[in-house]
């Protein structure tokens, strides 16, 4: 298994430029109950244009690792670079768009107003803001909803608006923390399909946290399986599925084989204890 992983890395190293690189990253939270080791010895390379899923049970550190990439948490050991920079520097250069589990749209802004929030902060001109908002709303299939307020939209549409917001500026990394976790399965399937389309259109590098095995397998080019106490990587799986994936690919033997391996990885990490 380790040989497979190493081989996978080397393959990527040759084919793509590394965007995110972690070497022995550890992160210890100081809590009232003493120190908690959230991450331990995380080493990983993510190449440009990859779709990487982080999967594991609660407390395995998948969200913490994503937040560390976004410089929202700060590793206490090892080294982590984003676009060759320290995460905080990358954050200041607006290297990534971040999508949270909740849409987190401002209730006092319309959908268009919410999508242009980062553009206002970055300082785009009014004309360019309007142009970009129209473009990304179209990208997430929300054109015509710009003037609506968030509460007038369904949960799935709100989450699409929040993805549009993350896409509105030119970050070429998209970090998504269980973005569809709160949605029902039918909406989730459709959004997964749209997300793949969007990924193909934009060529962004995507880091995606999930606890759904089918979701991880369906979306990813690389699946990182993690386990808790301390949060660590138990397996890294390079997907053999083609880049273009219809929904029914999930019934193919290849898909099931990868899903099986993810499940094995989770079990190996005593994730079900």
């Amino acid at each position: 298994m380790a040989a497979f992983r190493r081989a996978g890395f080397e393959l990527k190293d040759l084919s793509a430029e590394t965007v995110i690189e972690a070497k022995g990253v550890g992160l210890v939270f100081q809590t009232d109950d003493g120190p908690v080791e959230a991450l331990k010895g995380i080493s990983l390379k993510i190449g440009r244009g990859e779709f990487v899923s982080f999967i594991g049970p609660s407390g395995c550190g998948k969200t913490t690792f994503l937040r560390a990439i976004a410089a929202l948490e700060h590793p206490t050991a090892g080294s982590l670079t984003v676009n060759g920079m320290a995460p905080d520097e990358a954050r200041r250069k607006r290297a990534y768009g971040y999508v949270f589990q909740a849409a987190g749209l401002y209730p006092w802004r319309t959908i268009a107003g919410n999508v242009q929030l980062p553009l206002e902060i970055i300082g785009f001109s009014r004309a360019e803001r309007a142009e970009r908002v129209a473009r990304v709303l179209k990208l997430v299939d929300l054109d015509g909803f710009g003037k609506k307020f968030p509460w007038q939209l369904s949960g799935g549409m709100q989450q699409r608006a929040s993805i549009a917001r993350a896409l509105a500026f030119d970050a070429d990394i998209l970090l998504m923390d269980e973005p569809f976790g709160a949605l029902d399965e039918i909406v989730r399937d459709r959004l997964n399909e749209e997300l793949l389309k969007l990924w193909a259109e934009t060529g962004k590098t995507i880091g995606f946290v999930t606890h759904s095995i089918p979701e991880a397998v369906y979306l990813s080019t690389k699946i990182v399986v993690m386990s808790p106490r301390p949060g660590r990587i138990t397996d890294v799986i390079e997907s053999t599925l083609p880049r273009v994936r219809p929904l029914d690919i999930r019934d193919s033997p290849e898909f099931l084989a990868i899903a099986h391996r993810v499940r094995e990885g989770l079990r190996a990490g005593h994730a079900y204890d």
Binding site: R67, A70, L72, R91, R92, K93, R94, Y96, G97, Y98, F100, A102, G104, Y106, L117, P118, I121, I122, F169
Partner: peptide
């Protein structure tokens, strides 16, 4: 979460 979101945009305190 809302504060983190603005942090990812590198928004200033004034912003």
């Amino acid at each position: 979460m809302q504060l983190d979101l603005l942090k990812t945009y590198n928004a200033s305190r004034v912003g």
